Simulated scan of single mutants.
Amino acid sequence: MMTKVSYADVEVGTELPAQSFPVIRDTLVRYAGASGDFNPIHWNEKFAVGVGLPDVIAHGMFTMAEAARVVTDWTGDPSAVVEYGVRFTKPVVVPNDDKGAVIEVSGKVAALLDDGLVRVDLTATSAGEKVLGMARAVVRLA
């Protein structure tokens, strides 16, 4: 797959298209099956509240993956991501209703590096709260 964006076309401050990712309880059950992470904080409201959470929460790795989609959609090539990391700052709380939660993700080019590499800084929020901190990807552009 070819990248959509070339190194020559970006500069510090270039904004990636923002995206919203809806999350409902069904999404969490499907992710648990795919990942093998069946921790009850991700599907059992009584258990989650019993351990001090406000409600069921999305898997941290699921939240991290959704944020990365902003970068991979922008490049058009998931293999263009050569480094990616985040800090988990707040959980994504997923109520048991038809609306669930929404993860809002935006990004911008923060640095032009050597050899066609750029650093993209991401901002991820849910319910007005920042859910990922220090979310950064290093991407190789053509």
Results as ranks from 00 to 15, higher is better:
58 A>T: 11
102 V>T: 06
11 E>G: 13
105 V>A: 12
100 G>I: 07
94 V>L: 03
89 T>D: 00
51 V>K: 11
108 K>P: 06
78 P>G: 15
123 T>D: 14
116 G>Q: 04
116 G>W: 07
81 V>H: 04
1 M>Y: 13
100 G>A: 08
3 T>Q: 02
133 G>N: 00
16 L>F: 12
91 P>H: 06
113 L>P: 10
128 G>L: 06
134 M>F: 09
37 D>S: 12
58 A>S: 05
139 V>C: 05
27 T>K: 08
15 E>M: 08
67 A>L: 06
78 P>K: 12
63 T>Y: 09
54 P>N: 08
135 A>G: 05
1 M>C: 12
32 A>G: 13
17 P>R: 14
5 V>D: 00
2 M>G: 13
35 S>Q: 09
6 S>L: 10
2 M>E: 11
51 V>S: 04
136 R>L: 03
78 P>L: 15
9 D>W: 13
135 A>V: 06
34 A>V: 10
62 F>R: 01
21 F>T: 12
77 D>L: 04
32 A>T: 07
56 V>T: 12
22 P>W: 07
29 V>N: 04
48 A>R: 04
105 V>T: 07
75 T>H: 03
116 G>V: 01
118 V>P: 03
135 A>I: 04
41 I>M: 00
108 K>Y: 00
16 L>N: 14
41 I>D: 01
73 D>P: 02
112 L>S: 08
82 V>M: 11
141 L>V: 15
100 G>V: 06
90 K>F: 05
4 K>P: 04
23 V>C: 00
16 L>T: 09
115 D>V: 11
61 M>W: 10
86 V>W: 14
100 G>H: 10
122 L>N: 06
42 H>L: 11
55 D>I: 07
73 D>S: 15
96 N>I: 02
4 K>R: 14
80 A>T: 01
128 G>M: 01
125 T>E: 02
55 D>S: 15
120 V>M: 08
99 K>P: 00
78 P>Y: 15
95 P>G: 02
46 K>E: 13
133 G>K: 11
4 K>E: 12
134 M>L: 14
45 E>W: 15
100 G>P: 06
80 A>C: 06
78 P>C: 13
108 K>M: 08
